[in-house]
Amino acid sequence: MIKAEQVALVLLAGGRSERFGSDKLTQLYLGRPLGLHVVVALEAVPFRERIAVVSQTTLDLAACGYRIVHNDDPAAGMGRSLRLGVEAACAAGAEAVLIALADMPRVTATHIYRLLDRAEGPDAIVASSDGVIPRPPVLFGCMHFDALLRSEGDMGARELVKHGHHVVTSPAELLDIDTPEDLATLIHAR
């Protein structure tokens, strides 16, 4: 088990929302901006550091206690945001990073604690899964920081994630919002 106090939460909010057509993180879902749902869900988890990698969103994550890292080249893909977040986590002295996506409004603290409980040591890789495909949120121990710092394009850390442990949860919890239709479906599924 890795304790939350040893872990830097890296919230990736640096995408361009191209498929959505506007700043999806500021769109309302259940009366709150979409990008704040995961923030609120994880606010009681005592992470060592909270880092948000942003580019074009107007969402004020600094007001929520996040150290802001700007991705000045979001076209370079998720790998760039991942690298920037891991660099900030290294500077904070984190022993592990938990990568979460700001467009996943149903992630719960309970699931994050399940990932932390499953992580064992600096070589840990623990990803979320719907039982078929591993995906974020995902935890990486510090032995993988060098590999994460070499991430490129939109593939990010997918190859690493395939080789880790997978903690299965409801597919509904791992839903991410990429298009207006995704958001409409989520709103009507309540």
Rank of each mutant, 00 (worst) to 15 (best):
F145Y: 07
I133K: 10
H70I: 13
D123Y: 04
V10W: 00
Q27R: 06
P180T: 09
C90H: 09
A4F: 01
V132N: 07
E159L: 14
E18I: 10
I68F: 10
C64K: 07
P33G: 02
P46A: 12
E152P: 10
G156C: 11
A94F: 03
G164N: 10
E173C: 14
V40N: 10
L139A: 05
G141N: 06
E181C: 09
A75Q: 08
L61R: 01
V138L: 02
L160P: 06
V126Y: 04
H163F: 12
D73W: 01
H144Q: 08
L9F: 01
D176K: 08
A184Q: 09
G85L: 04
C142E: 06
G85N: 05
E87M: 04
H111D: 03
T57N: 05
D178C: 11
A89D: 00
G141S: 10
V138C: 10
T57F: 08
H165G: 14
E159C: 13
L84S: 03
E5R: 11
G21F: 04
L115M: 09
L175A: 11
G85S: 09
C142Q: 06
G31P: 04
D154Q: 13
M1P: 02
S81R: 04
T57M: 02
V167T: 11
L61G: 03
V168L: 02
V45N: 05
S17R: 00
L174A: 08
